[in-house]
Design a protein around this nucleic acid. Sequence first.
RNA 1: GCGAUCGUAGUUCAGUUGGUUAGAACGCCGGCUUGUGAUGCCGGAGGUCGCGGGUUCGAGUCCCGUCGAUCGCCCCA
Length: 449
Amino acid sequence: MAKNTPKAIRGTQDIFGSDAEAFSHVVETFERVRKLYRFRRAEMPVFEKTEVFARAIGETTDVVSKEMYSFEDRGGESLTLRPEFTAGIARAYLTNGWQQHAPLKLATHGPLFRYERPQKGRYRQFHQIDAEIIGAAEPQADVELLAMADQLLRELGISGVTLQLNTLGDGETRGAWRAALIEYFSKVRGDLSEDSQERLEKNPLRILDSKDRRDKMFLADAPKIDEFLSDEAGIFFEEVKSGLDAAGVEYKRAESLVRGLDYYRHTAFEFIPDEGSAAADALGAQSTVLGGGRYDGLMESLGGPATPAVGWAAGIERLAMLVDLEKAQGNDHWVVAVVPVGDAAYIEAQKIASELRSNSIICEMAFRGNVKKRMQKAAAAGARFSLIIGEDELANGVVTVRDMATGEQATMRRNWIPQGVFDLFFENDAAKEQGDEVAPLSERLRANS
RNA sequence: GCGAUCGUAGUUCAGUUGGUUAGAACGCCGGCUUGUGAUGCCGGAGGUCGCGGGUUCGAGUCCCGUCGAUCGCCCCA
């Protein structure tokens, strides 16, 4: 290790190789799916006045005091690297007059920052994809948002993950339920874990997802949100559920799924790995794959008009851990390596490489070392065919085609590139689809040799 | 913020109760061989053992501190 080289910041990561490919695949899939639902792309600054996040999240929580990356700029203003997308999007919505586009479907992705202790699937700089529908009070917005999330996970090939769905009701419902929970847990206060005794003061809803055995025995008999649900809130939830049924989105009611912050109303949801699934093993204690809810109270906390909104976010790194890269790279096999032999052949090889790439064929040029090294490079690049060009080929106006799977070789007329290469791949794929054997290479190239 | 485990070539690791010159595999570079990879042979480079201090005749090994990693707790917007 280089002694004098600065190290990366704690909790940051350099992503490379198959991890980087999986990461990129998640983002590309998100971009494709969000367009299907006509969510519009937005880019926001990665930092804002600290106030934006402090007011959105609520000054009281230690989230603000301890877990944000805040600093003073040269003018003495407190700035914060964004710990989430929603507050910045809300600020942008209000300051840019995006009300005129309401209901506005927005999608974005990028880095976020939280000053936390790193652990499995949890970093100080991490990355999320994010989707929001702003200015829509209708349950249909929740359904559309969830349908997109569900389709995204399916297209990523992620299985063993279930949508956990709950309602927090409207403001009235939430207040009554909260009061009932405080009353219930206060009676058994002395038997709760130390952490939960503290939660009773600061954040009573959170007792419901305590991991402590001492708390768990009281959870079954705790007051249920349904007992306090107002008629309006009950109807809203029913409409979300029937909409999800119609959209073919499977879900499970999760009565104890809560949100700590007061501005959350109605729908709250998380996609969580099923117990014992491969996904659960892969993610450790950080199990939520995608989560969100309706935050009808947020805009007002930033000084805007009451504006209903619903959204979700998902960690790209976590999704990337669950992606099956083999499947993800299904179309990446049209790879060719061009292998020049001798200096004279290099110029012609470079022309060939350019022609192939211009025609969307993935091409690696092996230009270093002896022929053996170049063939090794070709194989390492995953080439299905190598195009070898040396003095003989130059003289005869051909290239030598090598099938890297079978070792067969035959010549192809130089001026048949790139069409001839395209044909080889096309025939291979067609044969594979039909379950047929392909003819020997020499036969396939006879007409063009 | 708290707890546990761990830091040795580029990577994954071995390294005996503290003992001479710290090893292997893979990777990398070169040669056999600029005309053949997946599947040959030969050679080479690369480490102040995370960093600092201590104990000792002697520390990769033991002790303290520190930084980092991993896993969990708290928190989770």
